[in-house]
């Protein structure tokens, strides 16, 4: 089953972890060095081109990283196929929906934010 790859999932887990680490460090540096965040400054930052792209990338990495983590937990503890496969499918659908929701949010504010 292609869903249960060995090395590829392990590498993806590490790569997404690194992406999340870098983006979190970037976010922390922005927050700590800049003036305290107001609605205006946050909106301007998040709807700038690279701000919006980085937020989408952040959530993409978060969803992928979370998928591998949840998948590992299911592989460890839940063995009945009748339970395992629907559970994995459900998690995948929810994570994908969350990502789409974030993309829609960013698209809406990006278009109107200017």
């Amino acid at each position: 089953m292609r869903l249960f790859l060995g090395q590829r999932a392990w590498v993806l887990q590490r790569v997404t972890a690194l992406v999340l680490l870098i983006l979190l460090a970037l976010g922390a540096a922005t927050l700590l060095t800049g003036p305290s965040l107001s609605y205006g400054s946050w909106h301007a930052l998040a709807t700038s081109t690279h701000g919006a792209v980085l937020i989408v990338v952040f959530f993409a990495a978060l969803c992928l990283h979370g998928w591998i983590g949840v998948r590992d937990i299911v592989l460890d503890y839940i063995h009945a196929p009748a339970l395992r496969l629907p559970l994995l499918a459900l998690v995948a659908v929810i994570l994908f929906a969350i990502f789409i929701r974030v993309v829609l949010t960013m698209a809406a504010h990006f278009a109107g934010g200017g």
Binding site: G6, Q7, A9, L75, D76
Partner: peptide, 10 residues
């Protein structure tokens, strides 16, 4: 042989 989600990557 080891590149498998169960054999090694558990």
């Amino acid at each position: 042989y080891l590149d498998d989600v169960y054999r090694l990557y558990r």
